[in-house]
Amino acid sequence: MKDDRKLRGLYQKVIEGAASSDEQALVARWLDQLDTDEGMDEQAADEWKARSIAELQKAIKPPIPIQSRARKFVWVASAVVVLLVAVTALLIRFYNQQPTEVKTSSQVLAYTEHSTTAGQRKLLTLADGSRIWLGNVSTVRYPKDFQPGKREVFLEGQAFFEVSPDSTRPFLVHTGGLNVRVLGTSFNVKSYSDEGVQTVSVATGKVSVKPTNDGQEWMLEKGQQVSYHLATKKGVMQETDLSAALNWKDGELIFRDMSLDEIAVQLERWYGVTITIASPSVNNRQLSLSVKDEPLQAVLKMLSLAGDFRFEIRGNHVRIWK
């Protein structure tokens, strides 16, 4: 603060024409030596610029006594011009020292995010022409502009991907436990955080599937599926019923030898309800059913006949018992 007051005093003396040659030289040296940190970010640079201009304004704005001698008036005007030129030159030098903004792969990317609620599905079309059918209670996130060497998508929940071919930019899907890589194909990914198993099912082409932190890799072709168990970090590749794995995107629910527990989870997401199974004895009954655009009441009626249980719907809550 003491140095600031001294400099302001010297500014005033220079402007009023009262500064000695030594004082004028001191101000000139200060202006010449003034520099900034080359690592300063844009916000700090703006603040520095504002402070510099404010300091200059403080130095030149105080009322200047009217001088009767024209020579003194000319000298004062010249001093103001010199100060303005000096500070302007310093600002130009400062901004020339700042690194030019370059977009690199390490730069923070802007993302687009889409989510669905229970009973809701969405069809999304990406900039490259690829399409995503987003399932119930799911979220997908991807850069607004894909990077030159890859197309990355992050998924929580379920989605069916129809990928436009591009040999120079592989299409990557990241879940909480798996990395899926393709060049141009169609496949389904199911990855809910509250389930212990993640699955990838292939409809066309070939798909590479690798766990996030593991050396395993599976190459899947049409009709094949890998089920990856998060707890054991083990995966099983097998042939699958594509209609059961993929028809959800067309509004069809297909259950093939599934326990009532597993079916209840899907019904909750599909219809936006909470299901309580009050009788443990019916939890593990294996049931099969295929329905499309049916109300919950009708679906539960068909399941209850096959599973020999009773149910009650009250608002958004369903109770099942023996």
Rank of each mutant, 00 (worst) to 15 (best):
A45N: 12
N316I: 12
N188F: 03
L123Y: 12
E156S: 14
S52V: 13
F73A: 15
S186N: 07
W270F: 07
T175E: 15
I53V: 15
E162M: 12
V102P: 03
L178V: 00
Q57N: 15
D214K: 06
L183M: 01
K234R: 09
S78N: 08
R121A: 05
I275P: 14
K13T: 06
Q198H: 00
I66E: 11
L289P: 03
Q266A: 07
W30D: 04
S279Y: 01
K206E: 00
L91K: 05
G184K: 03
Y192M: 11
T100Y: 15
L246M: 11
S115Q: 03
A45M: 10
G235L: 01
G184R: 02
L124M: 02
Q120K: 09
R169F: 13
T139H: 07
V27G: 01
V81T: 13
G223Y: 14
T276L: 10
Y142V: 00
W30T: 02
P148H: 02
R69K: 13
G157N: 03
M219F: 13
L172A: 10
D257S: 13
A79L: 10
T88L: 11
I92D: 09
P63I: 15
E294I: 15
R5M: 06
L253T: 04
M237D: 00
A50Y: 03
T232H: 06
K322I: 11
F154Q: 04
G215F: 10
H317I: 13
R319K: 15
Y95S: 14
L296P: 07
A298M: 15
A203L: 08
A70I: 15
I254S: 05
L7K: 13
P63Y: 15
H114E: 06
V81S: 12
I66K: 07
D4G: 01
Y192Q: 04
A50T: 02
V140Q: 01
L155D: 04
Q43S: 13
W75P: 08
V87L: 11
H114C: 15
V299T: 01
E16P: 01
D194Y: 02
G307D: 01
T139E: 14
T212N: 11
K61W: 08
K72Y: 05
S52T: 13
Q297D: 12
L126P: 03
Q238M: 03
D194F: 01
G215A: 08
R5K: 11
L183C: 00
L303P: 13
L242T: 03
D22I: 04
W248H: 09
E16T: 06
V209C: 00
G135R: 01
